[in-house]
Amino acid sequence: MNDLLVTDSVSKKFGEFTALNKASIAVPKGSIFGLLGPNGAGKTTLIRIINQITIPDSGSVYLDGEPLQAHHIQNIGYLPEERGLYKSMKVGEQALYLAQLKGMHKAEAKKRLKYWFDKLEIGDWWNKKIQELSKGMAQKIQFIVTVLHQPKLLIFDEPFSGFDPINANLIKDEILQLRAEGATVIFSTHRMESVEELCDHIALIHKSNKILDGKLADIKRQYRTNTYEVGLLADNTTEVQQQLQDKFEISAADFKSLDNDLKLNIKIQPNQSPNDLLSFLTSKAQVNHFNELVPTANDIFIQTIKNN
């Protein structure tokens, strides 16, 4: 078993509305799994089913090969998108309470909380009330509470919302470190740049159906267009352009450069290699810029949603 979490055709209806239709995903151990989809696609429903907050109508969920059971909540850390803390309770008390609800003993929880508070440099907040803290500060505490019990599976729903760039980076590094220590992470977000940065697997949910999943690199290969962004310096640009047009599919490109280049996107045919293009180009002009246009997660997201 290489997958930590498997959902097997999980469905959920709310009255007439189908929130999730036979969604099957497999989250490999030690991966950062991006759960993507537009608003209202069913991501949160799936996450709530994994957390046993919502009971699915049909389908099953396996954690580490076992069917999901009540005691598994101790192995999951969940940071919901709609999150907050008791306003009038002290930071330390609150963190201890939440840790104990996850099955930790008080002494152990205290020790680990101290470690994390020191690590994120918030040691002196212990006796403050949440209402005295800013939103970003409260988010740090929520993050600590999520990871404190060293769960095998971490689920973050929009973890970076509300953080300033410095703290967002801090949290990102912590997530990466937790993965390095063996945790598996499910990561739900709209921010494609953080998907690009962090995720090695993704699944795309649209209108309650899973429409795409797999390794991010594989998917990118699948969506590759074999198009190259090229910047050329030549005396007779129109002639070069004409010659290119005969051999390849070209269109105008836009990128920053220092010289007054001829900027083109050039698509090669399956029977052609990038080297063919490059050697052709070097024979005609000076190549200042040569770059494969790799589809971004954002492109894939928009394209897949549009096609469905």
Binding site: I73, G84, Y86, K87, Q142
Partner: peptide, 17 residues
Amino acid sequence: IEEKTSRIIEIIISSVK
């Protein structure tokens, strides 16, 4: 209501029925 408005509820019920 306080648990709802402070948005802590989802954190709590991921641990408690």
